[in-house]
Simulated assay, not measured.
Amino acid sequence: MTTPEVVLHPLALISITQSATHKTINCGTNKPERSVGILLGIENEEEVIVRTSFEIPESQLLTKMSEGVKLNSEVNKEYKIVGWYAGMANGEPLTSDIELHSQIVGENKNGLFLILNISKCYQKETDKIPITFCVLRNELFVPCNYRIASVDVERIGINEIINSGSSVETDKKEKEGISHAIETLKKKVDILVKYLKGVENGIIQADDHILAKIAQICSSIPVSDNSVFREEFNQESNDANLTVLMMQLIHTATVISNNIVNYQELKLRYNKKLAKEEEERKKAEQRIGFDIRRGGVMMGDLEGEYDSDD
Protein backbone atom coordinates (compact mmCIF):
# COMPACT_ATOMS: atom_id res chain seq x y z
CA MET A 1 0.00 0.00 0.00
CA THR A 2 1.39 3.40 -0.97
CA THR A 3 2.04 6.22 1.46
CA PRO A 4 0.43 9.67 1.09
CA GLU A 5 2.21 12.88 0.11
CA VAL A 6 2.34 15.22 3.10
CA VAL A 7 2.32 19.02 3.04
CA LEU A 8 3.48 20.69 6.27
CA HIS A 9 2.67 24.34 6.95
CA PRO A 10 4.96 26.60 9.04
CA LEU A 11 2.39 27.40 11.76
CA ALA A 12 2.16 23.71 12.64
CA LEU A 13 5.95 23.39 12.66
CA ILE A 14 6.35 26.45 14.91
CA SER A 15 3.81 25.05 17.38
CA ILE A 16 5.52 21.63 17.44
CA THR A 17 9.03 23.03 17.99
CA GLN A 18 7.77 25.41 20.69
CA SER A 19 6.12 22.47 22.44
CA ALA A 20 9.35 20.46 22.30
CA THR A 21 11.43 23.43 23.53
CA HIS A 22 9.36 23.93 26.69
CA LYS A 23 8.33 20.33 27.42
CA THR A 24 11.42 18.33 26.48
CA ILE A 25 14.54 20.40 25.80
CA ASN A 26 14.18 22.88 28.69
CA CYS A 27 12.46 20.53 31.13
CA GLY A 28 15.37 20.68 33.62
CA THR A 29 15.26 16.96 34.53
CA ASN A 30 17.45 13.97 33.73
CA LYS A 31 14.47 12.14 32.25
CA PRO A 32 12.58 14.62 30.03
CA GLU A 33 9.00 13.85 29.09
CA ARG A 34 7.94 13.56 25.47
CA SER A 35 6.17 16.56 23.98
CA VAL A 36 3.08 15.25 22.22
CA GLY A 37 0.04 16.77 20.54
CA ILE A 38 -2.51 16.57 17.74
CA LEU A 39 -2.07 17.47 14.05
CA LEU A 40 -4.98 19.23 12.33
CA GLY A 41 -5.47 19.81 8.63
CA ILE A 42 -7.18 18.73 5.44
CA GLU A 43 -7.02 15.40 3.66
CA ASN A 44 -7.86 14.50 0.07
CA GLU A 45 -7.18 11.56 -2.22
CA GLU A 46 -3.71 12.74 -3.21
CA GLU A 47 -2.21 14.33 -0.11
CA VAL A 48 -2.56 15.15 3.57
CA ILE A 49 -2.14 18.84 4.44
CA VAL A 50 -1.04 19.59 8.02
CA ARG A 51 -2.14 23.15 8.80
CA THR A 52 -1.77 23.49 12.58
CA SER A 53 -1.20 21.55 15.80
CA PHE A 54 -1.75 21.83 19.53
CA GLU A 55 0.00 20.31 22.54
CA ILE A 56 -1.60 17.97 25.11
CA PRO A 57 0.10 16.18 28.04
CA GLU A 58 0.67 12.58 26.98
CA SER A 59 -1.27 11.21 29.96
CA GLN A 60 -4.34 13.16 28.78
CA LEU A 61 -3.87 12.86 25.02
CA LEU A 62 -6.87 10.62 24.35
CA THR A 63 -9.23 12.26 26.85
CA LYS A 64 -8.46 15.92 26.03
CA MET A 65 -7.87 15.93 22.25
CA SER A 66 -11.57 16.47 21.47
CA GLU A 67 -11.52 19.71 23.50
CA GLY A 68 -8.58 21.04 21.47
CA VAL A 69 -10.28 20.12 18.21
CA LYS A 70 -13.42 21.95 19.33
CA LEU A 71 -11.43 25.11 20.14
CA ASN A 72 -9.68 25.04 16.76
CA SER A 73 -12.97 24.48 14.94
CA GLU A 74 -14.11 27.91 16.14
CA VAL A 75 -11.59 29.39 13.67
CA ASN A 76 -11.18 26.65 11.05
CA LYS A 77 -14.27 24.46 10.78
CA GLU A 78 -12.87 22.43 7.88
CA TYR A 79 -9.86 21.20 9.86
CA LYS A 80 -9.93 17.68 11.27
CA ILE A 81 -7.50 15.35 13.04
CA VAL A 82 -4.97 14.07 10.50
CA GLY A 83 -2.53 12.59 13.02
CA TRP A 84 -0.37 13.36 16.03
CA TYR A 85 3.22 14.23 16.87
CA ALA A 86 5.85 13.36 19.46
CA GLY A 87 9.14 15.09 20.25
CA MET A 88 11.62 12.66 21.79
CA ALA A 89 15.33 12.44 22.46
CA ASN A 90 16.17 9.38 20.35
CA GLY A 91 13.66 9.93 17.55
CA GLU A 92 12.41 6.33 17.74
CA PRO A 93 8.74 5.42 18.35
CA LEU A 94 7.77 3.31 21.34
CA THR A 95 6.06 -0.07 21.07
CA SER A 96 3.00 1.41 22.77
CA ASP A 97 2.79 4.12 20.07
CA ILE A 98 1.22 1.65 17.63
CA GLU A 99 -1.87 1.21 19.81
CA LEU A 100 -1.93 4.91 20.71
CA HIS A 101 -1.75 5.84 17.01
CA SER A 102 -4.71 3.59 16.19
CA GLN A 103 -6.77 5.14 18.98
CA ILE A 104 -6.05 8.68 17.73
CA VAL A 105 -6.58 8.27 13.96
CA GLY A 106 -9.19 5.49 14.11
CA GLU A 107 -9.85 3.86 10.73
CA ASN A 108 -7.90 6.49 8.77
CA LYS A 109 -5.21 4.48 6.97
CA ASN A 110 -3.34 7.72 6.13
CA GLY A 111 -3.29 8.96 9.73
CA LEU A 112 0.10 10.61 10.34
CA PHE A 113 2.66 10.23 13.11
CA LEU A 114 5.23 13.07 13.12
CA ILE A 115 8.44 12.31 15.01
CA LEU A 116 10.70 15.22 16.02
CA ASN A 117 14.22 14.02 16.87
CA ILE A 118 15.22 16.34 19.72
CA SER A 119 18.83 15.14 19.85
CA LYS A 120 19.49 16.44 16.30
CA CYS A 121 17.93 19.88 16.75
CA TYR A 122 21.19 21.62 17.70
CA GLN A 123 23.73 19.53 15.82
CA LYS A 124 25.79 21.65 13.42
CA GLU A 125 25.99 18.89 10.83
CA THR A 126 22.18 18.69 10.60
CA ASP A 127 21.15 20.41 7.36
CA LYS A 128 17.46 19.47 7.48
CA ILE A 129 14.66 19.78 9.98
CA PRO A 130 14.90 16.55 12.04
CA ILE A 131 11.30 15.42 11.57
CA THR A 132 9.87 12.26 10.06
CA PHE A 133 6.29 11.63 8.95
CA CYS A 134 5.06 8.05 9.26
CA VAL A 135 1.91 6.05 8.58
CA LEU A 136 1.00 2.68 10.04
CA ARG A 137 1.34 -0.27 7.66
CA ASN A 138 1.13 -3.88 8.89
CA GLU A 139 1.77 -2.81 12.49
CA LEU A 140 4.90 -0.90 11.46
CA PHE A 141 5.56 2.84 11.07
CA VAL A 142 6.54 3.56 7.45
CA PRO A 143 8.12 6.96 6.56
CA CYS A 144 6.34 9.34 4.12
CA ASN A 145 7.63 12.04 1.81
CA TYR A 146 6.75 15.58 2.84
CA ARG A 147 7.31 19.15 1.75
CA ILE A 148 6.90 22.47 3.54
CA ALA A 149 4.49 24.98 2.02
CA SER A 150 2.87 28.19 3.18
CA VAL A 151 0.16 30.63 2.25
CA ASP A 152 0.08 34.41 2.57
CA VAL A 153 -1.76 34.30 5.91
CA GLU A 154 0.96 32.13 7.44
CA ARG A 155 3.74 34.39 6.15
CA ILE A 156 1.97 37.37 7.73
CA GLY A 157 1.53 35.39 10.95
CA ILE A 158 5.22 34.51 11.07
CA ASN A 159 6.05 38.17 10.48
CA GLU A 160 3.80 39.01 13.42
CA ILE A 161 5.71 36.58 15.62
CA ILE A 162 8.99 38.20 14.56
CA ASN A 163 7.65 41.68 15.37
CA SER A 164 6.63 40.49 18.84
CA GLY A 165 10.14 39.21 19.48
CA SER A 166 10.33 40.91 22.88
CA SER A 167 8.45 37.95 24.36
CA VAL A 168 10.54 36.04 26.89
CA GLU A 169 9.33 32.78 25.30
CA THR A 170 11.12 33.50 22.01
CA ASP A 171 14.42 31.66 21.98
CA LYS A 172 17.48 33.77 21.15
CA LYS A 173 18.82 31.18 18.73
CA GLU A 174 15.48 31.08 16.90
CA LYS A 175 15.48 34.88 16.58
CA GLU A 176 19.01 34.84 15.15
CA GLY A 177 18.02 32.14 12.65
CA ILE A 178 14.97 34.10 11.47
CA SER A 179 16.99 37.34 11.22
CA HIS A 180 19.65 35.54 9.19
CA ALA A 181 16.98 34.15 6.84
CA ILE A 182 15.48 37.62 6.31
CA GLU A 183 18.93 39.12 5.69
CA THR A 184 19.70 36.38 3.15
CA LEU A 185 16.40 37.03 1.38
CA LYS A 186 17.17 40.76 1.25
CA LYS A 187 20.57 40.06 -0.35
CA LYS A 188 18.93 37.89 -3.02
CA VAL A 189 16.42 40.65 -3.80
CA ASP A 190 19.30 43.15 -4.08
CA ILE A 191 20.98 40.88 -6.63
CA LEU A 192 17.81 40.80 -8.74
CA VAL A 193 17.52 44.60 -8.55
CA LYS A 194 21.16 45.07 -9.61
CA TYR A 195 20.66 42.67 -12.52
CA LEU A 196 17.55 44.52 -13.73
CA LYS A 197 19.30 47.88 -13.43
CA GLY A 198 22.27 46.47 -15.37
CA VAL A 199 19.98 45.25 -18.16
CA GLU A 200 18.15 48.59 -18.22
CA ASN A 201 21.43 50.53 -18.48
CA GLY A 202 22.84 48.20 -21.14
CA ILE A 203 25.68 46.95 -18.93
CA ILE A 204 24.34 43.37 -18.84
CA GLN A 205 22.93 41.54 -21.86
CA ALA A 206 19.28 40.60 -21.33
CA ASP A 207 18.38 36.93 -20.93
CA ASP A 208 14.73 36.22 -21.67
CA HIS A 209 14.68 33.09 -19.49
CA ILE A 210 16.07 34.98 -16.46
CA LEU A 211 13.74 37.92 -17.01
CA ALA A 212 10.74 35.57 -17.18
CA LYS A 213 11.77 34.00 -13.87
CA ILE A 214 12.19 37.44 -12.27
CA ALA A 215 8.77 38.49 -13.59
CA GLN A 216 7.25 35.36 -12.05
CA ILE A 217 8.84 36.17 -8.69
CA CYS A 218 7.73 39.80 -8.82
CA SER A 219 4.16 38.82 -9.68
CA SER A 220 3.90 37.00 -6.34
CA ILE A 221 4.95 40.12 -4.40
CA PRO A 222 2.09 42.55 -3.59
CA VAL A 223 3.14 46.03 -4.75
CA SER A 224 -0.24 47.65 -5.26
CA ASP A 225 -1.45 50.22 -2.74
CA ASN A 226 -5.12 50.70 -3.41
CA SER A 227 -8.15 50.35 -1.17
CA VAL A 228 -8.94 46.82 -2.38
CA PHE A 229 -5.42 45.60 -1.62
CA ARG A 230 -5.35 47.26 1.81
CA GLU A 231 -8.73 45.74 2.69
CA GLU A 232 -7.63 42.24 1.65
CA PHE A 233 -4.28 42.65 3.37
CA ASN A 234 -5.92 43.81 6.61
CA GLN A 235 -8.34 40.90 6.47
CA GLU A 236 -5.53 38.37 5.97
CA SER A 237 -3.48 40.05 8.69
CA ASN A 238 -6.41 39.89 11.11
CA ASP A 239 -7.00 36.23 10.23
CA ALA A 240 -3.34 35.46 10.88
CA ASN A 241 -3.37 37.35 14.19
CA LEU A 242 -6.52 35.49 15.20
CA THR A 243 -4.91 32.16 14.32
CA VAL A 244 -1.81 32.99 16.37
CA LEU A 245 -4.01 34.15 19.26
CA MET A 246 -6.07 30.96 19.12
CA MET A 247 -2.89 28.87 19.24
CA GLN A 248 -1.77 30.79 22.33
CA LEU A 249 -5.21 30.41 23.93
CA ILE A 250 -5.26 26.68 23.22
CA HIS A 251 -1.81 26.32 24.76
CA THR A 252 -2.90 28.36 27.80
CA ALA A 253 -6.13 26.35 28.17
CA THR A 254 -4.13 23.11 28.03
CA VAL A 255 -1.72 24.34 30.71
CA ILE A 256 -4.60 25.49 32.95
CA SER A 257 -6.44 22.19 32.47
CA ASN A 258 -3.29 20.26 33.32
CA ASN A 259 -2.72 22.38 36.43
CA ILE A 260 -6.32 21.81 37.56
CA VAL A 261 -5.86 18.05 37.25
CA ASN A 262 -2.58 18.24 39.18
CA TYR A 263 -4.23 20.37 41.88
CA GLN A 264 -7.10 17.91 42.23
CA GLU A 265 -4.67 15.00 42.55
CA LEU A 266 -2.59 16.87 45.15
CA LYS A 267 -5.72 17.84 47.09
CA LEU A 268 -6.97 14.25 47.07
CA ARG A 269 -3.61 12.99 48.30
CA TYR A 270 -3.51 15.69 50.98
CA ASN A 271 -7.03 14.82 52.18
CA LYS A 272 -6.10 11.13 52.30
CA LYS A 273 -3.01 12.01 54.32
CA LEU A 274 -5.09 14.08 56.76
CA ALA A 275 -7.65 11.27 57.07
CA LYS A 276 -4.88 8.75 57.73
CA GLU A 277 -3.26 10.98 60.35
CA GLU A 278 -6.66 11.52 62.01
CA GLU A 279 -7.29 7.77 62.02
CA GLU A 280 -3.85 7.12 63.54
CA ARG A 281 -4.48 9.81 66.14
CA LYS A 282 -7.80 8.22 67.16
CA LYS A 283 -6.17 4.79 67.36
CA ALA A 284 -3.39 6.27 69.51
CA GLU A 285 -5.97 7.88 71.82
CA GLN A 286 -7.83 4.58 72.08
CA ARG A 287 -4.59 2.77 72.96
CA ILE A 288 -3.73 5.40 75.58
CA GLY A 289 -7.24 5.18 77.02
CA PHE A 290 -7.03 1.40 77.11
CA ASP A 291 -3.65 1.54 78.80
CA ILE A 292 -4.98 4.00 81.38
CA ARG A 293 -8.01 1.82 82.11
CA ARG A 294 -5.84 -1.27 82.27
CA GLY A 295 -3.44 0.51 84.59
CA GLY A 296 -6.35 1.47 86.82
CA VAL A 297 -7.53 -2.12 87.01
CA MET A 298 -4.02 -3.33 87.86
CA MET A 299 -3.68 -0.69 90.57
CA GLY A 300 -7.01 -1.84 92.01
CA ASP A 301 -5.81 -5.43 92.12
CA LEU A 302 -2.60 -4.40 93.86
CA GLU A 303 -4.54 -2.41 96.49
CA GLY A 304 -6.70 -5.52 97.08
CA GLU A 305 -3.61 -7.63 97.65
CA TYR A 306 -2.21 -5.15 100.12
CA ASP A 307 -5.54 -5.14 102.04
CA SER A 308 -5.60 -8.95 102.28
CA ASP A 309 -2.03 -9.07 103.66
CA ASP A 310 -2.97 -6.66 106.42
Rank of each mutant, 00 (worst) to 15 (best):
L39C: 03
L39S: 01
L39H: 07
L39I: 00
L40S: 00
G41F: 01
I42A: 04
N44S: 14
E45F: 09
E45C: 09
E45P: 07
E46H: 12
E46G: 06
V48C: 14
V48K: 08
I49E: 09
V50P: 03
V50M: 05
R51K: 15
R51V: 13
S53H: 04
F54D: 07
E55D: 10
E55W: 15
E55C: 11
I56G: 04
E58Q: 13
S59D: 14
S59I: 11
Q60E: 12
L61P: 09
L61C: 07
L61W: 05
L61S: 00
T63N: 08
T63S: 14
T63C: 06
T63A: 11
T63K: 10
T63L: 11
K64G: 03
K64P: 00
K64H: 13
M65H: 07
M65L: 12
S66K: 13
S66T: 13
E67V: 08
E67P: 02
G68Q: 02
V69T: 10
L71V: 05
L71Y: 05
N72F: 08
N72R: 12
S73P: 02
E74P: 06
E74L: 15
V75F: 12
N76T: 06
N76S: 13
E78C: 10
E78K: 11
K80C: 09
K80W: 04
V82F: 02
V82M: 00
G83Y: 04
W84Y: 08
Y85V: 00
A86H: 02
A86I: 05
A86Y: 04
G87V: 01
G87L: 01
G87A: 15
N90K: 13
N90D: 15
N90M: 07
G91C: 13
G91K: 05
G91P: 03
S96D: 13
D97M: 01
D97P: 04
I98V: 11
E99K: 14
E99N: 12
H101L: 08
Q103T: 04
Q103H: 02
Q103N: 08
Q103E: 08
I104H: 09
I104F: 10
V105C: 07
G106D: 00
G106A: 01
G106C: 01
E107G: 08
E107P: 06
N108G: 07
N108R: 12
K109R: 15
K109Y: 06
K109F: 07
K109C: 08
F113L: 15
F113Q: 12
F113R: 13
I115A: 03
L116H: 03
L116E: 06
I118E: 14
S119M: 02
S119A: 08
C121P: 02
Q123Y: 10
Q123H: 11
K124D: 02
E125C: 03
T126W: 00
T126M: 05
D127N: 14
D127R: 14
K128S: 14
I131T: 03
I131K: 00
T132R: 14
F133G: 01
F133T: 07
C134N: 15
V135R: 02
L136M: 05
L136R: 03
R137T: 13
R137K: 15
E139Q: 03
E139V: 01
F141M: 10
P143D: 01
C144V: 11
N145H: 13
Y146A: 06
R147C: 09
I148R: 09
